[in-house]
Nucleic acid binder design. Structure first.
Lengths: 342, 342
DNA sequence: TTGAAAGCGCTAACAT
DNA sequence: ATGTTAGCGCTTTCAA
């Protein structure tokens, strides 16, 4: 038998309004009445009906805020694509998305953006933000206030949140190493080009990579690690320089963005037998894989990430979610020339 | 401005009841009135609201039928998992799924199952069925009757349908060849173990495989093709036999199911340097990849297939879909030891 | 052939 | 502090 607000009210001997107040902590209800309703709701297994909810709250939409450091960054456009998909799908269920795009990873900019979203009246937030102490504190604070926070694409260590939606960077790194194990028998002299040593995701990709190399007993040497700060120009310069200084390098592992810059350096360098690996299926990386400059990229389904982050946040606000929400980890997808999307 | 049945009715100068009758071809409406309403609906861009629809039709659920040849076949269980996910998600929007599980791929059994689903009152069908003439005719007939038909996991050539939801078998085959190109330099003597030469998917996997081998100028020879009929026992026997007769074989391409049987033959054979490739991430194939008997499997996200097939069918019945619905092609995912799910 | 009205589950505004 | 009511968009039934 289906449990509705009406039947719950009947069972508890109160009105529907009171049930609503109890279930959503709005308005004042005597504690013992509230307790009785809550108990009954749990016992009878009450689950709110989205259709009814959506219809009733049609003119007070569920506002969900999203923070993206997407300005001038093609990768985040893919996530935004997924956010838009979710918005379209759930709009007739009362969803409204407020998207705040910022440039870069500066802490103060991100904190300001969060404030902006809250001021806009968002009931839940999807954040692709930085792993710093102040941001973590802010997130914890929001969480304690009852605002559902979904961390998107990059997690924050030890933050209280609804869930994380994104890739498993450790596995992604390990997968690159596993592919090397499958394809190469000779000794590997590796250059790592990372985005920034301060970015959690990049570091995990390196950690997973090295762990798997060791686990599989690969004969390798780490020649150098350089930072590109996700700038293509810098990546090209620094990569070109190191390749010249170390002609023994036969493998380049690009842990961050700026794949295109590294590709340019590889082309300029001209050596044919360098095995290069990178991440993410952007226009530029697809070109490089197609041309054989990079042998494969490991991808993380950014569009699905955006879509599911919004969906989770919506479900949380709509009361569809149970106590503990598992993280949503996207697949670690190896793209070689043959299975690249066109 | 949002277009509702009410506003449409107002604009057309008729009652809401009449608009409903026109939009759903129920009851009789004078042709010129009907035409006016239809035109206006298109002009104003009317899209039915799921929430309202669900609420009103609460006791007449949208029944969607699913046909799965899943009896005794672990792979289809994954698809069913996705079907259940969709059912759970859309149940409070009025969805009800009728699942018909059958054994094997016999045409008459499948035709009977389709009849069963229709008799149950299904408004739309998701079919994982066989590519035969009679089934195609039946599907075409249903489609013309206005029943939304989603072909799931395997397409039917030249059938009229809402859309296909499943993997791109050609790309999947090509991906296996691409991985060989990446990993092997020596001459390949290949044994192909297919499920059945009558199954479209298996044939496409072989076609894509060979095309890509040629495209990449791989030095290879096709030693033999054998059929397992997706039986592990038969697969083991026939594979073991061929491997003994052809000790030069150094690559086994398993295009169908029965991966476990082939794995057993490889273990029994004992030769260490055979490079084996298969499809799909089942318990048995994961074991084989973990153990290194199979180097990788190419996967097709069966759970997503089940989920999206139901979702599409639901959306079609709920009137959310526009004229032409694109196919939903799942990713072609290479799973090596490092990115295998645990 | 068409119109009018009730009601699905929920929330917000109003009334007590 | 609690109850009552109207109405969201749609379908269905009853009435005309």
């Amino acid at each position: 038998m289906k449990v509705t607000v009406k039947s719950l009210a009947q069972a508890a001997g109160v009105s529907r309004g009171t049930v609503d107040r109890v279930l959503h902590n709005r308005g004042a209800v005597k504690e013992d009445v509230a307790k009785r309703v809550r108990l009954l709701a749990k016992e009878l297994g009450y689950v709110p009906n989205r259709a009814g909810r959506a219809l009733a709250a049609y003119k007070t939409p569920i506002k969900i805020g999203a923070l993206m450091p997407s300005v001038g960054n093609a990768f985040y456009q893919e996530i935004i694509q997924g956010i838009n998909d979710a918005q379209r799908e759930f709009q007739d269920l009362g969803l409204e998305v407020v998207l705040k795009e910022v440039e870069g990873f500066e802490e103060s900019v991100h904190l300001e953006a969060i404030d902006y979203l809250l001021k806009k009246g968002c009931k839940a937030l999807c954040l692709a933000t930085v792993n710093t102490e102040k941001v973590r504190d802010r997130v914890n604070e929001l969480y304690d206030k009852g605002i559902a926070v979904v961390l998107l694409n990059t997690d924050i260590e030890n933050a209280r949140r609804l869930c994380y939606v994104g890739s498993d960077y450790l596995t992604a790194g390990a997968t690159c190493a596993g592919m090397l194990a499958l394809t190469r028998r000779d000794k590997l002299n590796i250059l790592i080009v990372t985005g920034s040593r301060n970015l959690l995701g990049h570091n995990l990709r390196i950690k997973g990579f090295e762990e798997e190399l060791k686990r599989q007993n690969i004969n390798y040497q780490l020649v150098s690690i350089v930072e590109s700060f996700d700038s293509d120009i810098r990546a090209q310069q620094v990569t070109f320089q190191v390749l010249k200084e170390h002609p023994e390098i036969n493998c380049v592992y690009i842990a961050g963005a700026a794949v295109q810059g590294v590709g340019a350096a590889l082309i300029a360098n001209g050596k044919k037998d360098i095995f290069a690996i990178g991440f993410d299926e952007l226009y530029s990386t697809k070109q490089l894989v197609s041309a054989g400059i990079i042998k494969f990229v490991v991808c993380q389904q950014p569009t699905r990430q955006g879509y599911h982050a919004i969906k989770r946040a919506y479900q949380a606000v709509a009361g569809q979610l149970s106590e503990s929400v598992p993280d949503f980890i996207t697949d670690t997808i190896i793209k070689i020339k043959a299975n690249l999307d066109h």
